[in-house]
Each structure stands twice: as C-alpha cells, then as structure tokens.
C-alpha cells in the first residue's frame, strides 16, 4: 500500500522534492504540498483505493505524511495500517 501511496503522491502532490527522497514520516507540506495540490491528491487516493474520506479526515494532519495517509486509508479499507 505504501508504494502505491508514494506513486500517487509523486504524481499528484506537485512536491518540490522527489518522493523517493522522503521518509514515510517526512512533512509533505514542507516538501511543497499546497492546499490546491492536496485536493488533487485526495481525489486520486479516493479513486485508487475506492474510498471516500469522511469529513473528520479532511484535516491538515491526515495528509501531512505518507504514514498518516497510509493510516487513514488503512482505516477506511479495513487493512492493518501498520503493514508497509
């Protein structure tokens, strides 16, 4: 799951850093994720994992790191979030 998330972040995050250079816990906003790009990222994640983010997840923190995104998707798909 993490690799797929990384691909999507690379494609839609419009970061100023290559995703391969980032740790799972790196701050994506500091890496250049804007609020506009984050919407496209959310849409791509919803499409790829066939989920819909509930309102309570639409907060800055949910999309702050790859690990946080993995936790959120894990919770929505019922997959164990700790698995890499």
């Amino acid at each position: 799951m993490t690799e797929r998330i990384r691909d999507i972040v690379q494609q839609h995050g419009r970061l100023s850093t290559e995703v391969s250079q980032l740790a799972d816990t790196s701050d994506l906003y500091q890496a250049g994720l804007t609020s506009h790009a984050s919407v496209n990222l959310m849409l791509a994640l919803e499409e790829a994992f066939n989920v819909e983010f509930p309102e309570r997840m639409l907060r800055r923190r949910t999309f702050e790191t790859i690990a946080n995104i993995r936790d959120a998707i894990g919770e929505l798909t019922g997959s164990p979030s700790a698995s890499a």
Partner: peptide, 13 residues
Amino acid sequence: GSNAAMLLVSKDD
C-alpha cells in the same frame, strides 16, 4: 475557486 476545489472532496454536511 478555493471553496470549489475543497468541495470536490468535502461534503460539509
């Protein structure tokens, strides 16, 4: 424009 973008994912209900 900014609200329109957010409303692509936000439901606000």
